[in-house]
Design a protein around this nucleic acid. Structure first.
Lengths: 208, 208
DNA sequence: GACGCATGCAAGTAGTTGCTTGCATCACTC
DNA sequence: GAGTGATGCAAGCAACTACTTGCATGCGTC
């Protein structure tokens, strides 16, 4: 069937999913065309519709595949309890920052078009990010009950504030011009800010 | 000329700018159509092109008018030096948060399509937000030189971290479902976090 | 070698898009 | 009252959009 073109390996469906991530991220969801996705995949446009019915169906499949496994791989780490709170925050922030930087183009268009995502797509995203954040929030609640963290601090809010910093940091790091410092410094400073902001006793410094 | 329709006051160009803000924010920049903008303005579509030549020309005019005056009104407040640092941070954060909440739909689509904005549009946005942030950064530098702020803190980074929190907070506040707490609490917690995170001496509490 | 299945190809449909053209109508000014 | 400029209206254009249809081709299996 594959006459002579240099199609990458994998089934047509897999290649379409790979291509869709690229094109959605590059063009935005509504501006991405099925023709261009098919072309990027090295596959005929009809094959796209035969596999995913509609463009929206393709988007849903893209989100499921792009984010769900990422979460599953992390959520069933059962350790996490043994490590120090500061290390838990640092590990969460680092992982969160790097994951966002890896997918930042896709995340940006998702934010930009979040108000026109269907219920299904929104549900997929919630299923991904909520448990991931809840894990750190629980760790913080535990620490607060032990008196390590100031009582007036709201753990869920702290997690939201941290991911806000990682998200905008990843956004700025993408366009290297607008960030006046290296991304790693920004990440470390954000971790420091959170720790100094919530801990009862001053933490040790991360790095300059 | 205006046969009988209930057009709001102002010239056609003004009404088009008002309508463009609404439609760009609602549909996203690339999905917004000139037909819909003209309809929203109660103006014929040709008038749009006669006034702004292209859709991109309209976008540039929208950004100039929507953001530039907002900045000018704030930047030449010459006071700011007299007030306490904590109050300066609080005032900046409050103003920044409210401004973003007011324009959050437009800001969201700008972020989502930032990679396809032309140089002209990007320059407009930079001209708006940079001086606004620099004002607080300078205040922080001054405070750090007086020893009020820990030496290892980078003032420019702190400002970026603060606006990251206000931006994502405004984003979450828009969809009331995804924020598990009132926006004002989030804002106060962010101010507290910043102050506890940077000050040498612990600040007094804002509110629970 | 007959069957089913995935895919390619060519063509088409109905709708939308940014933008243009030609002409008429109003308001205002000298 | 002639000229000027801003606006409306109707029509259209060429390109593009998501999606469909009909038919052919290859691959693996029994």
């Amino acid at each position: 069937m594959n006459t002579s073109s240099q199609s990458p390996p994998g089934t047509a469906a897999e290649r379409l999913l790979d291509a869709a991530v690229v094109v959605f991220a590059r063009e935005g969801i509504s501006k991405a065309t099925t023709r261009e996705i098919a072309k990027e995949a090295g596959v005929n446009e009809v094959t796209l519709f035969r596999n995913f019915q509609t463009k929206q169906g393709l988007l849903a499949a893209v989100l499921e595949r792009a984010f769900l496994p990422t979460l599953a791989g992390d959520a069933n780490e059962p350790e996490g309890k043994a490590v120090k709170l500061e290390e838990a925050v640092r590990a969460f922030a680092t992982e969160d920052f790097e994951r966002k930087r890896r997918n930042i183009a896709l995340m940006r268009v998702l934010v930009g078009e979040s108000h026109r995502l269907g219920e299904h797509e929104s549900a997929i995203l919630a299923r991904i990010f909520h448990p991931w954040k809840e894990r750190l929030a629980n760790r913080l609640r535990e620490a607060r009950s032990k008196g390590l963290i100031r009582q007036e601090v709201d753990p869920a809010m702290v997690v939201d504030q941290l991911v806000a910093m990682t998200f905008v940091g990843a956004l700025r790091a993408e366009k290297s011009g607008v960030m006046g410092y290296p991304p790693e410094k920004y990440l470390n400073a954000s971790i420091d800010l959170i720790l100094h902001g919530i801990l009862v006793r001053r933490p040790k410094r991360t790095s300059k």
